[in-house]
């Protein structure tokens, strides 16, 4: 291997210098800070993020929703939304461990939302979708050129909403409403309650709840993003950041100059890139096997392989 981390210009461990923001962010608040900076500087004029029920109640016109689907707005179900202010960004910060179809707003962002310079955050597969829409814009007229900043988040796997419901309400015995934060780290699925409870589930419990589509995914660290970030590799409250493209480099450089982040060289922090590489390797190796298995899935018949 060796290509597991994709192409990047620089890699650091970083966190936002905005203390207030850090209270709401998942890790180092990289995504939220970077978008807030880009909005302020006019680099983007709106960002597509994964908001939630409370956000949708407060800013209904910012979400992609059909009136008939109000039942679908449940606690901890991510709702793609377009945000234009730091307050809205903060309201949508934090990881929701289930599927958020952020790309579904990509075209609409350039339509009824009137954006010219879109910021979008997403998992590696969503970064792939963004790039594919730019290169092969099928039904995506005028979208490609409007994408100004794509921020990728590391992703080992994702879950359908029903899985999260079951993991939290059955396995962790907590009501979803009372959950403050969820996190996957140190080999455990962590659920933090608003009243201070902490429940940790071993990852082997979560495996059967994973989204099956994630088992053919060969990207861990959002190789196609302008900037990718994740928790792995850096200490708690810090993020690992990879600056990849020219755009990413320019925005990151400006944000650094403006004092948005404090950083440490990735080589100086523990566990550092070694662990990121190891996990990326594990993901890719495991999923490649799954893909190979699809070739001989039936008797004399294969399942489709989207990579060929």
């Amino acid at each position: 291997m060796g290509a597991e981390l994709g192409n990047y210009k620089s890699c650091v461990s970083a966190r936002s210098t905005d203390k207030e923001l850090l209270k709401h962010a998942q890790d180092g608040g990289i995504v939220t800070s970077l978008f807030a900076f880009a909005l302020e500087e006019g680099i983007i004029d709106g960002a597509i993020v994964a908001a939630n029920k409370e956000f949708a109640a407060k800013y209904p016109s910012k979400c992609m929703m059909d009136n008939s689907n109000f039942d679908m707005i449940e606690p901890w179900r991510p709702i793609p939304a377009i945000v234009n202010t730091k307050a809205e960004l903060i309201a949508a910060a934090g990881t929701k461990y289930n599927i958020s179809p952020n790309v579904s707003l990509l075209k609409e962002a350039t339509r009824s939302f009137g954006l010219d310079k879109i910021g979008i955050v997403g998992t590696p597969c969503q970064m792939q979708a963004v790039r594919k829409a730019q290169l092969y814009p099928i039904g995506m007229r005028d979208v490609g050129a409007s994408i100004a900043l794509a921020v990728g988040i590391f992703c080992m796997e994702n879950f359908p909403y029903q899985s999260i419901l079951q993991l939290v309400e059955d396995h962790a015995a907590m009501k979803l409403e009372s959950v403050k934060k969820m996190e996957i780290g140190k080999g455990k699925f962590w659920v933090y309650g608003k009243r201070g409870q902490v429940v940790q589930l071993p990852l082997k419990i979560t495996h059967k709840y994973e989204q099956p589509g994630c088992h053919v995914c060969l990207d861990y660290v959002a190789n196609l993003a302008d900037v990718s970030t994740g928790s792995v590799g850096s200490p708690d409250g810090w993020s690992t950041v990879m600056v990849r493209s020219k755009i990413g480099d320019s925005v990151w450089g400006k944000a650094m100059a403006a004092g948005c982040f404090e950083t440490q060289p990735i080589e100086k922090v523990k566990p550092g890139l070694e662990l990121v590489t190891k996990l990326a390797n594990e993901k890719i190796t495991k999923n490649k096997k799954t893909l190979e298995g699809r070739a001989t899935f039936g008797v004399g018949k294969a399942l489709r392989n989207p990579y060929i």
Binding site: D45, G46, S61, N84, R111, S112, F113, G114, R141
Partner: peptide, 24 residues
């Protein structure tokens, strides 16, 4: 919603209003 084959129209009105930003 689209200039060729508009998506926003629906029976009973439109799917979405536009944002202030879009109006400007």
């Amino acid at each position: 919603g689209d200039c060729i084959h508009p998506r926003n129209t629906r029976i009973g009105g439109m799917y979405r209003n536009v944002s202030e930003q879009a109006k400007t």
